[in-house]
Write a protein that binds this DNA or RNA. Structure first.
Lengths: 185, 185
DNA sequence: ACCTGAACACCGTTCAAGT
DNA sequence: ACCTGAACACCGTTCAAGT
């Protein structure tokens, strides 16, 4: 019944997904494992590190081969951004978790390197920062919509929500168009 | 000696600037005003609202005429993004505060409307989300650099720090190039 | 190595009561 | 209208002690 680091990260992701980031406390993660809060510090030095490990886990679900999809580098970059966004949106408050942890070591992630190979460093950073921000914004709107649905259950779903996916696609295409223009000088 | 809402927001911004977002608690803001924590709730319904008011204050420092600077809409948009970033970077953790509050009501801010007039809705959103993310990333690197400077005072300043300003300029130009390309179809 | 139990120094928020 | 005082239900983290 004794736990290791992977157990702690997995439990933390469960709590995150069920209760959201603001309720994802060390104490609740400990409770999820039926353990005292202090026991967590045997596996992880602090909460910040635990969040970074959770972010790694969320991003790790992305297939590395995604970047090679499509004939052109531009198509590969587009697919990578979409996969990154999907991975973050797949878990509650995932965008916040990944963005905070990733911004910390921007320039050091595998996915940024992959993107940089396709569209250059500037393009990669621009795409990444936009993707993080757009995903955070999407998730915020979704949870606001859920709250609204709870308050007035008769209402139809916010039509803007479908738009956010398309808005993301257009934003990425805008940046990719800029990358093509600038690199063909 | 009695306070009003503006006093509370001003005190909160002082605490933010001196102690950072993670130490900007309702209790410390109250202490800054020599008042009990519960007194704040006479001026503000909760912390989230206070943070939104702080964000408004930070953004309000931007001159609205900035958007009209330069001959072309593209130049106006570039100037607006730079002004927004400068405003956020001017106060400690300002980017986090503004980004969180602004993402909440993206589509409702004056500055987004202004940008939308210049480069269209998609362009405005893309520029804004990128600007938020880049500013957050810049501020994160800066405080990491400060921490590093504290730990090893002999070191020179991180050379990457100067690059962040130029990296931002290149990112914005990339997006603007994309906007020009797409809109001239 | 992994965990318990107890403690320390904090949080945001509510509410009756004062002036 | 604005504030105090006290309370409630929480936090992250440390540390001696157990097995």
């Amino acid at each position: 019944m004794r736990n290791n680091r992977a157990d702690v990260v997995a439990a933390a992701l469960r709590v995150l997904n069920e209760q959201g980031l603001e309720n994802c406390s060390m104490r609740r993660v400990a409770a999820e494992l039926d353990v005292q809060p202090s026991a967590l510090y045997h596996h992880v030095p602090n909460k910040q590190t635990l969040l970074a490990l959770m972010a790694d886990e969320i991003v790790a679900s992305i297939d590395v081969a995604t970047a090679d999809a499509g004939a052109t580098p531009i198509q590969g970059a587009r697919a990578t951004c979409r996969a990154l966004r999907d991975a973050m949106l797949a878990v509650r408050d995932g965008a916040d978790v990944v963005a905070t942890a990733a911004a910390f070591r921007l320039g050091a992630s595998v996915i940024e390197e992959r993107l940089a190979e396709l569209v250059g460093e500037d393009g990669a950073r621009t795409l990444l920062l936009y993707t993080f921000g757009q995903a955070q914004s999407t998730q915020m709107h979704r949870q606001a919509a859920e709250l609204g649905a709870l308050l007035s259950p008769g209402e139809l779903a916010d039509p803007e929500l479908h738009d956010l996916d398309e808005s993301f696609a257009r934003g990425v295409d805008l940046i990719l168009a800029g990358i093509e223009t600038v690199s063909s000088n």
